[in-house]
Amino acid sequence: MGGLLEVKDLTVQRGGIAVLSGVGFTLDAGAALILRGANGSGKTTLLRTVAGLQPPMAGTVRVAPDAIAYAAHADGVKAVLTVAENLRFWAGVYGSVAIEDALAAFDLGGLAERPAQALSAGQKRRLGLARLIVTGRPVWVLDEPTVSLDRAAVGLFASAVQAHLAAGGAALIATHIDLGIDAAELDVTPCRAIATTAQGVFDEAFR
């Protein structure tokens, strides 16, 4: 019996060319994994593949259906809606109702009725992350979640992740900073696909 998320021998592609290959890890309930690697090393592509937004070139991602909550650089925050409306929308989509916990976790209570266009970049980011809590999904897949957050907000985020892990969730996070979470680390640099090898059936054809 594996964990919540099992990635085996995964090759991910961008524009038909393999970027990372042979990526493998397992995430158990209560565990977090931090992805490391330079800009452009393929972390985003890997996360999008894990989240099911793009098909893997080879290998498998095993995860229960509807288990992943994905968050990327773009928060999907609608500027003309208020903070509470933005969150309530996602809560409705995911079939939950309460947004108070999410507001509290990211200290957005005082901003709830403010339109999102009046938020600073960091506040917007917090709103984007608060969405994760209302999804109620066990596996968080996060791409650079701390961009534009100040130190206090990073602290809020770290405690939100820890609370999520304590509740039996799991998190896969690509980040460059130290979150202060007890988590394993995976450097994707060695997984970089070697350009000259045959990369799956498609690309071989156009060697």
Binding site: G16, I17, V19, A195, F206, R207
Partner: peptide, 17 residues
């Protein structure tokens, strides 16, 4: 088109090192 596609693949690979 096949030749162009091959060129495209080669160029892409060069760029990605």
């Amino acid at each position: 088109e096949i030749r162009a596609r091959r060129l495209h693949a080669i160029a892409l690979r060069e760029r990605m090192g």
